Simulated assay, not measured.
Amino acid sequence: MAISPHRVSGGASGPRLHHERRQELGQSFQDGGEHYHRVRPGYPADSLDWLLPAGTRFAADVGAGTGKFTGLLFDRGLEVAAVDPSRDMLEQLRKTWPQVNALEGTAEATGLADSAFDVVSVAQAWHWCEPLKASTEIARILRPDGVLGLIWNQLDTSVPWVHRLSRIMHAGDVHKPDFRPVVGPEFVDLESHLTAWQETLTPADIIELAKSRSYYLRANQATRTKVTGNLEWYLYEHLGHAPGETVGLPYVTQTWRARKARSAPPR
């Protein structure tokens, strides 16, 4: 399918972060695509299995970053478009999946065609979006009864040592048990699915993972030095891991899906 881009205007507010604050934090990810792609975890196949509606052929991955979730969609044989505001992230995505139609845009203004997709995924990015305007835009590019998927990888903080690790890393995006994402009235039947899994890393990999997070990226050098020092103490001295030893880091992937409403919401 040839996807003809056309621009629409973007929009305004989110549930937990003020607009300017989201922009400030989001700027942390404008560079460093290669590092992000190398150290950030992928997503379990179970998440996509649960998300995809039967008969899916066309998918858009919005806030695609370096393509961690995009690759799952492409490997299923789908025709995929990827949208992200960061040129650096998209450059990395194009290197890995040159067959994907990748373009600059946002969840509020994707630049994609009307009613072109069976599913639109937003992985690890909905918290950077303005959810009501993003919902309107995503409903525009979805076909009738199309599915919106919102996906988050979360450190499994029910495991005590991971909970402490998340505090040292300043992983502030770990959701509370009552978390429910905000979506617009264009979507109905919001439901969730959890996948528990582990990624095998070395202690050095975990430290590099911390360096890919917004807290570290926007910190001054003194704060960065403190974070890495605390992680080295925790991993090597307190937990007793040796350099190069493999560690199973527990994750929970939280997948939400909602169906495009059949009638337009009242204005």
Rank of each mutant, 00 (worst) to 15 (best):
I3R: 06
G14N: 10
H18T: 03
E20I: 02
E20C: 01
R21K: 06
R22H: 00
G26A: 11
Q27V: 06
S28F: 01
Q30L: 14
E34V: 13
Y36C: 09
H37G: 03
P41A: 11
G42H: 05
D46E: 15
L48I: 14
D49S: 08
L52P: 03
P53M: 12
A54S: 15
G55S: 03
A59S: 01
V62E: 01
A64Q: 10
G65C: 09
G67A: 09
G67K: 06
K68E: 09
F69K: 00
T70L: 12
L72S: 07
V80P: 00
V80M: 02
V83K: 05
V83M: 08
D84M: 12
L90R: 10
Q92R: 15
P98G: 01
P98W: 03
V100S: 03
A102T: 08
L103S: 15
G105H: 04
E108N: 06
A109G: 14
T110Y: 06
G111E: 10
H127Q: 14
I138G: 03
L142G: 11
G149L: 05
L150I: 15
N153I: 09
T157L: 02
T157N: 01
T157R: 11
R164I: 07
R167S: 13
H170P: 00
H175K: 12
P177T: 05
F179E: 07
V182S: 10
V183R: 01
V183A: 09
F187K: 07
L190Y: 05
E191V: 02
A196D: 13
Q198E: 15
L201N: 04
A204D: 13
I206S: 03
E208D: 14
Y215G: 02
Y215P: 02
L217V: 09
R218Q: 12
A222C: 00
T225R: 12
G229P: 02
N230A: 15
N230P: 01
L231C: 04
L235F: 08
H238G: 00
H238P: 02
G240W: 10
H241N: 12
A242S: 13
L249Q: 04
V252S: 06
R257C: 08
A261V: 08
A261D: 14
R262A: 15
S263M: 14
R267Q: 13
